[in-house]
Amino acid sequence: MITPQTMLTSLKEVGSTALFILAAAAILELILYFVLVKWLKSKFAFAFMLLAPAAVGLLLLVIYPLVWELRLSFTNMSLRAFRNPAFIGLENYVKVFTTPVLKQMRFFPLLRQTLVWTFVNIFFHVTGGLGLAMLLNRNMRGRGIYRTILILPWAIPQVIAVLAWRGEFNYTYGYINVLLQNFGLQPVQWMTNPTANFAAMCITNIWLGIPFMMVTLLGGLQSISGEYYEAADMDGASGWQKFKSITLPLLQPVLTPAVLLGTFWTFNNFNVPFFINQNELETSDILVTGLFRAAFQYNRYGFAAAFAFVIFALLLVFTIFYMRYTKTLQGGAQS
């Protein structure tokens, strides 16, 4: 049901905000025009004017909040001490490692859970995606249809896909338990058993993530010239030898950034653990959902901010090592 009244109300609010943003950008440009062009006569005047709106936006909505959050992490702000939080130094950072970050879960089990989650998912995304990409990378009938169908899990809005999977894990009516019972097996308590719940999260996310890897790697495989394989065939190389010495090395430039991107996405994946678990079992949380829970369920804002910076530091260290190890993304950042 929808009335013109409600349509108009939301349209007005969104429209006025959009106009506000455009007006702010126009004023900014005007000021910059006078400062850079008329006054400083900078040779980068036009470049800075092009950059300014995006830069100011990022400054106000990414950098400023992060700096503010850093300050927050040294205070005891919570729902109780919301207006006048006290400065408590590094206490929150110590607490992240020494006390439970949620009601019972501590930091290190949560970290281990996240690492297992990331590893299991990336492993199956890459093997599944690569397997399907190699099957599709040939001249055959129905190739386009297979590709289209296999891409669907990626195309569906994630919230819907995950909520649909949650339905499939229903104890009585879910597809998986019905199937298990048809084979004469015991149904599984997907929603209350911690191990099963974690497995449910993994199954859902593997299903969701394979298409991205498949399409990316298929693109990589198609760019490998067929001549390499012809030469290998003449030398009598086996299928495994060809895979190991031609396909994998030549796929590296595509594989490395895809794995890096996939690792971030999986490590930071919020939707799948959040919607499968719906904030019930603490044992199914990974770091980012734990962070959300610490902040918005237990309302320990100062503590959650410290927790967030610990997670960020972990990701930063990982990225630096990964980039140094592979050196693929450096060229892009410096060019």
């Binding site: 800075f48 990414v62 919020f270 967030a308 997670i311 410096q334």
Partner: peptide, 27 residues
Amino acid sequence: FPGRGAGLVFLLATQMIPASMLMIPLY
């Protein structure tokens, strides 16, 4: 322009920030 390289690295680094990390200050 000056600061270009740093800007590009910053843009890449923003991709690492977990969404729930920004939620806290924004909220």
